[in-house]
Amino acid sequence: MTDRTTDPATEAFVAHRSLLFTVAYEMLGSAADAEDVLQETWLRWSKVDPDRVDDQRAYLVRTTTRQALNRLRTMKRRREAYVGQWLPEPLVTAPDAAEDLELAESLSMAMMLVLESLSPTERAVFVLREVFEVGYDDIAGAVGKTPAAVRQIAHRARAHVDARRPRRTASARETRAALESFQRALQTGNPQDLLDVLAPDVVLLSDGGGVKRAALRPVVGAENIVRFYLGGAASAARFQATITWEPTVVNGSPALAVHREGELDGVMAVRLEDGRITGLYFVRNPRKLTRVTSETPLTLR
């Protein structure tokens, strides 16, 4: 049997693949688009002599960022035409990922939505600098700006994100406890139990993509969300009879996989502050549920 050795270019790409995927996903919020970016990155990398590249990781991250930035700019029209609320594609991650607070914060649904409010260049600069700790010179090469301009963009993006992110990242234990209380309240159909776990100004975003039924606009306020889920007694009874909830880990944070009559119906992630749920993110679009049956390796380093 003949020994087959992998060529150096392939070895380098495979060694950094999880990191490159995480960079692309954090910028795009879509696993399918992130995979396309990795394919484009590989096509460019395969034409390079790796022995002539001093820092292969930095080179690959720069190339991935350029491709993701190009795609991000072209995705704007697609997002504008999206039916209802747009949420990032949820990725099931390993259970121990929930203990990594840095990963949980940077890839949470709440943070990904904050990043959506940045311009493409601001998002690229913020992600590379604040999440992946890339140097200003390398970022400048990736986004086509001077290092001085990148510093200004980074400062502006950081201020924007800091004003919208939770004051403190909830631990996995705190998030699991809140989800358990939320799940029990829905299963029992007790409105007060649900009000106890929800912050008064909680916001529900649900993404059906025009395929599954979902609220087209944010549902704001605990009482409105209770009515949305439970309604009258008859509605609550039907809801309890058809829905089951299974704990999972999505984007590095505890979440719930929602099943309706035995079939996967969606994924529920939350934002937590001071022990109460301030954000609910319910993804029902079937096209966004293809990565919740197996784990996706994500890494920040």
Results as ranks from 00 to 15, higher is better:
Arg167Asn: 04
Arg167Thr: 11
Arg168Gly: 01
Arg168Met: 10
Ala170Met: 03
Ala170Lys: 04
Ala170Pro: 11
Ser171Ala: 06
Ala172His: 10
Arg173Tyr: 05
Thr175Ser: 08
Arg176Val: 09
Arg176Pro: 01
Ala177Lys: 07
Ala177Val: 07
Ala177Asn: 10
Ala177Gly: 10
Ala178Val: 01
Ala178Asn: 06
Leu179Lys: 12
Glu180Gly: 11
Glu180Lys: 12
Ser181Tyr: 03
Gln183His: 04
Gln183Asp: 06
Gln183Tyr: 00
Arg184Val: 01
Ala185Phe: 07
Gln187Ala: 06
Gln187Lys: 02
Gln187Asp: 02
Gly189His: 09
Asn190Met: 02
Asn190Thr: 04
Pro191Lys: 13
Pro191Gln: 10
Pro191Cys: 05
Asp193Lys: 00
Leu195Thr: 10
Leu195Pro: 12
Leu195Val: 08
Leu195Phe: 06
Asp196Gln: 07
Asp196Arg: 07
Asp196Thr: 04
Asp196Val: 01
Val197Asp: 09
Leu198Phe: 14
Leu198Met: 12
Pro200Asn: 08
Pro200Leu: 05
Val202Thr: 15
Val202Phe: 09
Val203Gly: 05
Leu204Tyr: 07
Leu205Asn: 00
Leu205Val: 02
Ser206Asp: 12
Ser206Val: 11
Asp207Trp: 08
Asp207Lys: 11
Gly208Pro: 12
Gly208Asp: 11
Gly208Ala: 09
Gly210Asp: 13
Gly210Thr: 14
Val211Gln: 11
Val211Gly: 05
Lys212His: 09
Arg213Thr: 10
Arg213Ser: 13
Ala215Gln: 13
Ala215Pro: 11
Ala215Phe: 03
Leu216Arg: 15
Leu216Lys: 15
Arg217Thr: 14
Pro218Val: 01
Gly221Lys: 09
Ala222Lys: 09
Asn224Arg: 15
Asn224Gly: 01
Val226Cys: 04
Val226Pro: 03
Arg227Pro: 00
Arg227Gln: 13
Arg227Met: 07
Phe228Gln: 12
Phe228Ala: 07
Phe228Tyr: 15
Phe228Cys: 05
Phe228Leu: 11
Phe228Arg: 11
Phe228Trp: 14
Phe228Asn: 13
Tyr229Asn: 05
Gly232Thr: 11
Ala234Phe: 00
Ala234Arg: 04
Ser235Ala: 11
Ser235Cys: 01
Ala236Gln: 12
Ala237Asn: 05
Phe239Ile: 06
Ala241His: 04
Thr242Tyr: 00
Thr242Ala: 12
Ile243Asn: 12
Ile243Ser: 08
Thr244Phe: 00
Trp245Met: 15
Trp245Val: 10
Glu246Trp: 01
Glu246Cys: 03
Glu246Met: 05
Pro247Asn: 08
Pro247Glu: 08
Pro247His: 13
Pro247Met: 03
Thr248Arg: 01
Thr248Gln: 00
Val249Met: 06
Val249Gly: 03
Val249Ala: 01
Val249Ser: 05
Gly252Pro: 02
Ser253Gln: 10
Ser253Thr: 02
Pro254Arg: 15
Pro254Ala: 13
Ala255Asp: 05
Ala255Asn: 05
Leu256Gln: 13
Leu256His: 11
Ala257Arg: 03
Ala257Met: 02
His259Leu: 14
His259Gly: 09
His259Tyr: 15
Glu261Leu: 10
Glu261Trp: 00
Leu264Phe: 09
Leu264Lys: 08
Asp265Asn: 13
Asp265Leu: 09
Gly266Asp: 09
Val267Pro: 00
Val267Arg: 04
Val267Asn: 00
